[in-house]
Write a protein that binds this DNA or RNA. Structure first.
Lengths: 123, 123
DNA sequence: CGTGAGTGCTTCGGAATTCGAAGCATTCAT
DNA sequence: ATGAATGCTTCGAATTCCGAAGCACTCACG
């Protein structure tokens, strides 16, 4: 398995923009974005969090939770629940505009539905 | 292969939350975030875009490009280059805060480097 | 015209990731 | 003790990703 993406791991010569690439890599793993989002609403236990994430695979959830802890975005509470660290909350807040955009996206596609040629499957 | 995530058949009256999950799913695919980012800087041809993305697999790039077009985030210019649609640019702009956050992330980890117990691999 | 280099894109076998059912050790209420 | 939760692991199978190779095409050069 690949290591958790970290802003450090300086590429020799220039760390420029590297932290962004690391973030894009971390977030670009299945379920990561979703977990941060769900955890931002409230602290959640393993199994409940799993349910909130459409019943995602427990093995992958465990994997992601470990990565998120390594990256200092998540941590375990005294009661055993998972929660976001202050840094994690910042990350989730940075996702705010993405959320707003998704509404725009939905509206846009409603105005101009995909053509048959573009696929997108039917329903 | 899974279909391109779409905010979904905007059921009249309630597009509730669904569009967010679709967005989180679309963005949570390897390279998608990165491609949007790179394409936001300037229109790029297939092979050049591939190089900008650390030489990612051409087959996956083609896959992502198709998804992005279906989702109306990207399109092909007359000269054949790929570019972001206005909607795609909005998406990329919504990523702005994430970029800022990644700097904070890097700074934070620099102050409190991961312990051996937290793994994170070696460097 | 032929040659070489670059392009967008596809194919396909192997590697890596994800899935998901099953199970284990605990805890808590009955 | 029993039943129902919980956090977390294991492991074989399905899916996704990788990446070298190749095809059809364009363009500059001669």
């Amino acid at each position: 398995m690949n290591p958790t993406p970290m802003p450090g791991r300086p590429v020799r010569g220039s760390t420029t923009g590297r932290s962004l690439m690391a973030a894009l890599d971390l977030f670009g793993r299945r379920w990561t974005l979703r977990i941060i989002w769900e955890l931002g609403n409230e602290p959640l236990g393993f199994r409940l969090l799993q349910r909130r994430c459409d019943g995602m695979s427990s093995s992958v959830l465990q994997q992601r939770l470990t990565e998120l802890q390594e990256a200092r975005l998540a941590e375990v509470l005294h009661d055993g629940n998972y929660t976001l660290t202050p840094l994690g909350h910042d990350a989730r807040e940075s996702l705010g505009p993405v959320i707003e955009w998704s509404r725009l996206w939905a509206a846009e596609l409603a105005d101009a539905p995909p053509t048959a040629a573009e696929g997108g499957g039917d329903g």
